[in-house]
Design a protein around this nucleic acid. Structure first.
Length: 103
DNA sequence: CGGTTGACCAAGT
DNA sequence: GACTTGGCCAACC
């Protein structure tokens, strides 16, 4: 099982209405390659299967989703996350630590 | 096999 | 509170 596959498998385990962080995933894989996790999700070969939008930065901010490219579906993702029970405020997840899913 | 890169992170300025 | 720096590690030249 390659590194990416592990990442996808973990992401799939994130329940609806919860989020996780790149760091948590990396730690769950017993590694510190936070960035590799992000790179894996960026590929995201299993678009609907792997809810990559439920994975945020360690401080609850939306690193990379909208933070980098504002022309992206920023409100789209936000609304999607909100429909799952999450609330995004100022590019950050409200009650992030509370909604954080730990493996 | 070396060098660069990155949907990261933590600490410092 | 916005920006910069150094470090981490897998993936891709």
């Amino acid at each position: 099982m390659s590194f990416n596959q592990q990442v996808y498998q973990l992401c799939r385990k994130i329940p609806r209405g919860k989020v996780s962080t790149y760091k948590a995933i990396a730690e769950a894989l017993n590694t510190k390659a936070y960035r590799a996790v992000g790179a894996a999700l960026r590929n995201n070969p299993f678009a609907p299967k792997v809810p990559c939008h439920r994975v945020v930065a360690s401080d609850g901010s939306l690193y990379g989703f909208q933070g980098k490219r504002e022309g992206m579906a920023l409100q789209r993702k936000q609304q999607l996350l909100e429909s799952e029970g999450l609330i995004i405020i100022n590019k950050k997840v409200k009650d992030f630590e509370e909604k954080l899913f730990k493996f």
